[in-house]
């Protein structure tokens, strides 16, 4: 039997969701019996293959043009897309920015920071531009499974993956559904 192909990527995120994923501990060995872990931000392969994967996992919100591209590429190349973590499902802490003026936030971050001398707001054509608003993944591309939590617990991640392996759409409840 061929293994299920899984790819992950992170957008505007703190890496906590990926850390929580690794917190499934030795269960990862069991997982790898059924799953081929393809590209992830914490392995050598960084981009999902053009021929596609079965399950794509995105963590983080969509805050700039680069992240928008990554999210769209993952959607194109996977059959089932999981939005993992509060940022991916709701926008999370990144959306705090939405309640401020964008230019003011950039100035605060790059120029007025207490430790910054002669700071400039980077505006090169070669780097990504911030979007008007920070968005959740499902505001950009269709999402099949929402797994909120900051981060979702390793058990919740394990639950979602094993349900999918068993051919069921996961329904989160109880301790698996927490965003506090």
């Amino acid at each position: 039997m061929t293994k299920i192909k899984v790819a992950t990527d992170w957008l505007e995120a703190c890496a906590g969701c990926h850390m929580s994923f690794l917190d499934i501990d030795d269960r990862i060995l069991e997982l790898l019996k059924h799953v081929e872990l393809h590209s992830t931000p914490i392995t050598d392969l960084k981009h999902p293959p053009e021929e596609g994967v079965d399950v794509g996992i995105l963590t983080g919100a969509v805050g700039n043009t680069h992240q928008l591209e990554v999210a769209r590429r993952m959607r194109e190349r996977c059959k089932i897309l999981i939005a993992m973590g509060d940022c991916a499902t709701f926008g999370g802490i990144c959306t705090m920015l939405n309640f401020f003026d964008k230019e003011e936030a950039l100035r605060r971050g790059y120029v007025e920071t207490e430790s910054t001398v002669e700071g400039r707001i980077p505006r090169s054509e070669e780097i990504a531009r911030p979007l008007e608003k920070v968005l959740a993944v499902d505001e950009v591309v269709p999402v099949d499974v929402h797994l909120p939590g900051c981060p979702p617990s390793a058990d919740a991640i394990w639950f979602v993956l094993t349900e999918l392996l068993a051919g069921r759409m996961p329904v989160l409840a109880g301790d698996n559904l927490k965003y506090d």
Partner: peptide, 28 residues
């Protein structure tokens, strides 16, 4: 309104949040 739980001090004790859990609200 702004009901991003993660930056609210009531998170964990909020009646709205606990109803969202009860009814499996995983997305907006």
């Amino acid at each position: 309104r702004n009901h991003y739980c993660m930056y609210c001090q009531m998170s964990g004790d909020c009646e709205l949040q606990s109803l969202a859990y009860r009814y499996g609200l995983t997305e907006w």
